[in-house]
Write a protein that binds this DNA or RNA. Sequence first.
DNA 1: TCCGCTAACACCTTTGAACTGT
DNA 2: AACAGTTCAAAGGTGTTAGCGG
Length: 584
Amino acid sequence: MLQDKGLSESEEAFRAPGPALGEASAANAPEPALAAPGLSGAALGSPPGPGADVAAAAAEQTIENIKVGLHEKELWKKFHEAGTEMIITKAGRRMFPSYKVKVTGMNPKTKYILLIDIVPADDHRYKFCDNKWMVAGKAEPAMPGRLYVHPDSPATGAHWMRQLVSFQKLKLTNNHLDPFGHIILNSMHKYQPRLHIVKADENNAFGSKNTAFCTHVFPETSFISVTSYQNHKITQLKIENNPFAKGFRGSDDSDLRVARLQRWGCAARGWGGQMGFRHVASVTLSVSSLSSCLSSCPPHPFSKEYPVISKSIMRQRLISPQLSATPDVGPLLGTHQALQHYQHENGAHSQLAEPQDLPLSTFPAQRDSSLFYHCLKRRDGARHLDLPCKRSYLEAPSSVGEDHYFRSPPPYDQQMLSPSYCSEVTPREACMYSGSGPEIAGVSGVDDLPPPPLSCNMWTSVSPYTSYSVQTMETVPYQPFPTHFTATTMMPRLPTLSAQSSQPPGNAHFSVYNQLSQSQVRERGPSASFPRERGLPPGCERKPPSPHLNAANEFLYSQTFSLSRESSLQYHSGMGTVENWTDG
DNA sequence: TCCGCTAACACCTTTGAACTGT
DNA sequence: AACAGTTCAAAGGTGTTAGCGG
């Protein structure tokens, strides 16, 4: 399994050209996360690094020592500052930027399961109006929570640390009945991906008395789900940086440019037809406007080979110079909750500051990546704005000219500043649990190689959106699919920050550690049996899920949900130590 | 009329099998 | 025979667009 595509893509990402990884490394270099004490590069299959006694380090490495660095952090920041949007489609759409992390601090010999879930960032529905995101009302009920488990899971710490861990095959969908196991989201809602690292016991993955997991949240990975891009800047960033969108970039080949212009000029007849736009686009603009665009488009670190001109840029410039203004992205009035956190550096837990001492912005663009322990507290105070109609960016008035694309808008974080959000915590019970039924009982333990991707080593149950009630696997109408879990439960809303509350300085991401006994895990929810196979394509025989993964589903959701709940109820005092996260 | 959503489309990258050379 | 490198077609990802429907 370590040679499957999951690993391949990880390797590929790890070997990505200097800028991307280099930036990430540089960004992370100062942080202790990537300088985990005692990690031997040789033991991890990587170049030797400082600190070398693997055995001693392994003995001391616990779940809270795991450090996670977000790959391509700078790219994420760019999107975040513009207000990241992720397309969701019925068939499922990948995230871009893709979620890739560098993990350190694991015990090289311990097995871990890495998985991602995506939780609502707040209780709002948004709309894009006047070139900015605004609250448009109350959020729709959250979709059935699904987990994306990295296909390599479970794997040793050495494996995870050897290279980047890529979740690029994670897909998002708005299909409530999605049968593919993609993560289901509501359009026009804001979400926050979370990375969970679950320690797998040597014998039964989750059977140890001290099954532990940690959760890492990178605020810059939050996004608003859309069915079509709303913010032109996001479209441009996607086109510039996503290789699959290369076809929408410009080119030095003038013929190609003309062809592209003709194509979109034709398509644009609706808005430019009255001025004979097709002709203009193919002739006049290919000379003047294109050169103007070329000269004004800054080289992008990920697009060095050619200047970036997209149809969208051209369109904006062609329609009206005024349209190329920087969107006036005002404050996004949303709901936010208090957050108290405590920094953990180099294994020491040190309280940083009182909440009021910390920055106000919800998701600051500039934070260092220090690791934080967190206590999350939700408050209410949702303020919903029903604002006037949405206008497309093409129609949006603007007084700014050429700097539309190049001038940095107010950081998205700042846009997210909001009054305090005081909301009663909604306890969210884990309603569906993966099973370790008889048919999977015989599956070998962690010593087995991870099953092949289509062997469905992960599974999910899909519940109709209409219900969040407890649902056992027997009633599930759809099938498990690789690398995804579903928990038919209300998704926990991510505790976000109050404008009055604390903010970690720098680029910190949030990390929450937990360590619970298995007995407590089991008390939190019954297991469901593995669903019967139905409708799988030929050649995709689904094997019973790994017990690790079943247990992961059970474990994680029971723990994360209880974590959300308990963090609100119990951990509001700011005592963010590991001990505080230890149940019982 | 507005706005969100969908399917079709062209363009592109990725992937893996087949082929060739050493 | 084994391995490495190349070629090529299929598969899949991307944003764009027109049209649909609430």
